[in-house]
Design a protein around this nucleic acid. Structure first.
Length: 601
RNA sequence: GUGCCUGUAGCUCAACCGGAUAGAGCUUCUGACUUCGGAUCAGAAGGUUGGGGGUUCGAAUCCCUCCAGGCACGCCA
């Protein structure tokens, strides 16, 4: 049975997780015990406490002034969870602990194995989410500063999509603003055409930097730049053409990075896209009495908001020009009214917190009900704990950094697996190098700054992408070997296609788990469906990364203790299925983080 | 000056709308290989969660205060 066929024959009933099943049972028991039916139930914090735990008795005990242990006993008496676990234990000051029955684990794992979504249910309340991430600036190369927004935004988009939300990925490119006065003046006065042909963006950057420097010490140059900007904004043909060319060159450069990173966008509506809407935004806000004129500029004051009372927001400068606050307000309008978004996530660094507070406050005053969230993140630091820069103090170009990652990965492959073909080595090096960079970022909580270390991210040991990729590779190796010795086995997953190619027809069967490491691994596999939705709760891909790391650990422990191919049936089939499912969860989980897995490495 | 963020093992990090004895990895040390990829596994050592108060059955988590670092605060984006 092809996986695609199976999808057609198995009805798409969303799977329950142990957590949701037990939570429902707990809720029933609370009702029978005459208590409010709200109670949380989480994965156990420690294996000593079983698999799941609830502290409802502690919470209710406090609220009602009753003894929590007695309450816990009362709740347990009403609990009917025999299908999944033995009698729940009351422990500590009143925790209720649940330990799964092996039969229930075997049954659940089988269902996960048969599910294309690996047990992950789609959301019951799908939303249309615009995710604003990346946002590089035209006429500047992408640098390390862009990596977190890009990688984090992409991962959130992948997870949201997988959970059934409608996702619109929008690249809010910085393609407008005062820097273009300098770019255009430089283009007209300093441009080296040959250099432009060789490396367009590098030449544009050189010209921009030199102009910037001249303008800082020469008022005439500064004034000339300002004039070029005015002409551009007035629609001057020559300047518009130059601007268009700069944008095109920059976009080409971005695309190369996106190809390496495997990032795609649904929309790339840069700042300039909103130009013709900016006067409307200001008029609207003035008419509504939200904005007012102050010292010649149009400004929004938040006098009744203690946090923002002394932090006005300028939406039109004294000289009549607009700034990025105006653009951001026009952008919200477009996303709500044209794109019909009900949710917008801004994956933008923490320094802009105040700006977004102000923007969101204005939108709220205008009556927008869209759910807007600023997803912040910390900085990328060098090993000296300062903002990561090159030796000469410049930003590190992102493309060079990514290429360096692939080079370093390639070197490791040359050492470990020299016999692979050149093409395969390059392909693997890219998967490992890019994966390592992404994983180093995503495996850490987003708001903390992180220290960029080649040594750590490319290590085969510890919580790294190469370690997880290696776990996958080992499993695939088992299946290559199994195929070679030609044994029929019941599989539905990744391995199934291979078996079919070898002429073996998979047959359905059950798990038979005997060893502690097998049971532990199976439980872990069932948790995938509980973990994935949590990623969006607080925008934390790192909890998925941590889960995958623990899964790989559990697999390795199993692998160490349990021979797969050399074992007797039914353990052999059961272990092959466990291995196959582990590979699929690793592959899917890493895919949700935007990381690819190689077949060998 | 005002506001926001950060401070957890030697190092890099988890755990955060309060929950059980604060967990991993790296490093160090001790074990396990005629290995289905040892690129592994099992174990040990390592802590006054920046300091001090407070709230309560319970605090890394919430409140106050101090210290240290970072960031932002009207015409850049």
């Amino acid at each position: 049975m092809r996986r695609s066929d199976r999808a057609a024959t198995v009805p798409a009933v969303p799977m329950d997780t142990f957590q949701s099943l037990l939570a429902k049972k707990l809720s029933d028991a609370l009702a029978r015990a005459g208590l409010p039916e709200v109670g949380e139930l989480t994965q156990a914090t420690d294996p000593r406490f079983g698999d799941y735990q609830s502290n409802v008795a502690l919470v209710f005990g406090k609220q009602r002034g009753e003894n929590p242990r007695a309450l816990a006993e009362k709740i347990v008496a009403h609990l009917d969870v025999d299908e999944f676990c033995g009698r729940p234990a009351v422990a500590g000051t009143g925790f209720i602990n649940f330990t799964l029955r092996q039969a229930a684990v075997e049954k659940q794992t089988l269902e996960v194995l048969q599910d294309d979504r690996l047990g992950v249910a789609e959301t019951e309340s799908p939303r249309r989410i615009v995710i604003d991430f990346g946002s590089p600036n035209v006429a500047k190369p992408m640098h390390v500063g862009h990596i977190r927004s890009t990688v984090l935004g992409d991962a959130l988009a992948r997870v949201a999509k997988f959970l059934g939300h409608e996702v619109i990925r929008d690249n809010h490119v910085g393609d407008w603003g005062t820097q273009f006065g300098m770019v255009i003046w430089g283009w007209k006065n300093l441009l080296d055409r040959q250099a432009l042909q060789r490396n367009p963006l590098a030449e544009i950057v050189r010209v921009y930097k030199e102009t910037n420097e001249r303008a800082s010490r020469d008022t005439e140059v500064r004034e000339a730049c300002r004039q070029e900007l005015v002409k551009l904004q007035a629609g001057d043909k020559e300047n518009t053409d130059i601007w268009n060319e700069c944008v095109a060159f920059s976009m080409q450069d971005f695309e190369r990075v996106y190809k390496l990173l495997d990032i795609r966008y649904d929309l790339q509506c840069g700042e300039s896209f909103y130009n013709d809407q900016l006067p409307n935004v200001v008029d609207r806000l003035l008419k509504a009495g939200i904005a007012e004129i102050s010292e010649g500029a149009v400004v929004v004051f938040f006098r009744d908001d203690p946090d923002l009372a002394d932090k006005p927001l300028i939406i039109r400068k004294r000289d009549g020009g607009f700034n990025y606050a105006t653009t951001d307000l026009a952008t919200i309008d477009y996303r709500v009214n044209e794109l019909k978004a009900d949710t917008i996530w801004y994956v933008v660094g923490a320094p802009q917190t105040l700006h977004f507070k102000q923007i969101f406050a204005v939108a709220q005053r205008e009556g927008y009900t869209v759910d807007v969230r600023h997803v912040t993140f910390g900085s990328v630091l060098g090993e000296d704990r300062k903002l990561m820069k090159t030796r000469s103090g410049e930003n590190v170009p992102l493309r060079e950094l990514l290429e360096e990652a692939c080079r370093r990965a390639r070197k490791i492959i040359d050492e470990k697996n020299p016999d692979l073909s050149e093409d395969e080595k390059n392909d693997i090096a890219e998967k490992i190098g890019i994966g390592a960079v992404k994983y180093a970022d995503l495996s850490q909580y987003r708001t903390t700054d992180y220290i960029f270390s080649w040594y750590k991210m490319l290590s085969l040991h510890g919580n790294t992408a190469p370690y997880l990729q290696n776990a996958y590779v080992r499993i695939r190796s088992i299946f290559r070997k199994a195929g070679a010795i030609a044994v029929a086995t019941p599989l539905w997953g990744v391995g199934a296609a291979q078996y079919e190619e070898a002429g073996h027809r998979p047959v359905a069967t059950a798990f038979t788990l005997t060893e502690p490491t097998e049971i532990n691994l199976a439980k872990r596999l069932c948790q995938f469906a509980e973990i994935v939705p949590q990623v969006l709760n607080g925008f934390r891909p790192n909890i998925l990364a941590n889960y995958l790391f623990e899964l790989a650990n559990s697999f390795h422990a199993f692998y160490e203790a349990c021979p797969v191919l050399k074992s007797e049936e039914p353990a052999r089939s059961s272990r092959l299925m466990l291995s196959d499912l582990t590979a699929r969860v690793l592959q899917r989980g890493l895919d949700l983080l935007g990381i690819k897995v190689p077949e060998r490495m």
